[in-house]
Computed example of a mutant assay.
Amino acid sequence: MMKKAENIIVGISVGDLNGIGSEIILKTFEDTRMLELCTPVIFANVKIMSFAKKNLDATIALHGIDKIDQLLPGKINVLNVWKESVTIEYGANDENVGKYAIKSFTAATKALKEGQIDVLVTAPINKYNIQSEEFKFPGHTDYLNQELEGDALMFMVQDDLRVGLITDHVPVNEVASQLTEALIKSKIETIKKSLMQDFGISKPKIAVLGLNPHAGDGGVIGKEDDEILRPTIKKLFDSGTLAFGPYPADGFFGSGQYEKFDAVIATYHDQGLIPFKTLAFGKGVNYTAGLNKIRTSPDHGTAYDIAGKGIADFNSFKEAVYLAIDIFHSRNEYAAMTEKPLKIKEKHL
């Protein structure tokens, strides 16, 4: 049975309390029409969110709860993950605040894992002040990959522009050594599956960017493109996956060539994210594809320089909420479509 829109539970991790996370969350749900699309649950503390609300001079009502089953549809629910007070100093890099960002995130992930929330939207964290003996991950994605089923892939999305990564938070001097046939196949197949089940594209076309300048120029500028990428892409294509490339990365976006494909996969972080953020910044969404649960986030960081000033642009966070809901619906529709033939077949046995 399909859930009614307002009953889709969107869990939200609050991010770095000294950044713009609380602000963009509250600004998103100031528009009460958002509560017709979902029921938000902010994993934080109602006093902290009330402090942020007062700083913004916002008039929205917050509903504090101590257990997830106390949430109310049509309300902005705040689940008290902790009770103690936390000192907020907007713009400051604070290890103590980093601990609370992780308390919020791990509690929200647990709720997602246990099916208490339907999707997760994460506000920005500081990758430096979250590190501890209990949490030794470069960011959200790596932790989610450990806790949830599947193989996580960073997938940047803005309308029909979708950019995935073969390697993500890897030093540039290590990228070439990590480009194996197995990894390339895995990431392309993950994107293919996501395009089908999450975006409703039945026969997705995927472009792969080359590692080296001019995709190696026939081996003159590096051999990885000809020796690893090209043969792997051909194997995938021959097996029915519509993967193409490797394409020289320098002119691929500027020429509009990306518009011919349903997704583009870059070999490393900046190769994909620089053009994506140039084209989509402020409205782009970071989606963790490949997992059995749905997580999205805005395409920006904590923005310490403007934190607490009430001037943060919340559109990327709002788009992250929209995309999480859209993917939730798409997955349900995809599951219904793929299960129906099986039921028909069983009926005639």
Rank of each mutant, 00 (worst) to 15 (best):
A58H: 06
I8N: 11
G222H: 08
F135D: 14
E224T: 15
Q131F: 08
E259Q: 15
L342G: 01
C38A: 14
F199Q: 08
M49S: 04
K318S: 05
E339H: 11
D151Y: 13
A307C: 09
K4D: 10
H300V: 05
Q271H: 06
N93H: 03
T302I: 08
V119S: 10
A263L: 05
G19I: 07
L273M: 06
G150W: 01
T267I: 10
A335Q: 05
T106M: 10
G272K: 08
E319G: 07
T232P: 04
S297V: 04
A44F: 09
K47C: 01
G11N: 08
T190R: 07
L71C: 09
L161Q: 03
N129I: 15
I325E: 00
R33S: 13
A243K: 11
L236N: 06
P275F: 03
E114W: 04
I25E: 01
E133V: 11
D94P: 11
Y143V: 09
D250C: 13
N7R: 15
A92W: 00
N126Y: 06
K234D: 03
A44P: 03
S316Q: 01
Y334M: 08
F29A: 05
E181G: 15
G200F: 12
N315R: 13
N173G: 06
L291V: 11
A307W: 01
S132I: 06
T241K: 05
F155W: 06
T338L: 11
F237G: 05
A58I: 06
F29M: 06
H329N: 08
G98Q: 04
F281D: 01
I102N: 03
M1N: 07
Y287D: 00
N55S: 14
I188V: 15
F252T: 00
L71F: 07
A111D: 02
I8H: 04
D16A: 12
V119K: 10
H300K: 08
T288K: 05
F253N: 02
I311R: 05
T338I: 12
P275I: 09
A336R: 13
H140Y: 14
A108R: 11
A52G: 08
K67D: 02
E134T: 14
R295S: 02
N315T: 04
E6I: 12
D225V: 07
D326Q: 14
G11Y: 02
V81I: 13
L236M: 10
L153H: 01
K67V: 04
R33W: 00
D57Y: 08
F252P: 02
F137E: 04
G272H: 07
S186M: 14
A320Q: 03
Q158L: 08
D118M: 03
G64C: 06
H329Q: 02
K293H: 05
E95G: 07
K340W: 05
T302F: 07
E89I: 14
A108D: 02
A108W: 02
Q146I: 12
G240Y: 04
I130W: 04
D31W: 05
I117M: 04
V46Q: 05
A289G: 09
S330N: 12
A249Q: 04
K136H: 10
S202Y: 09
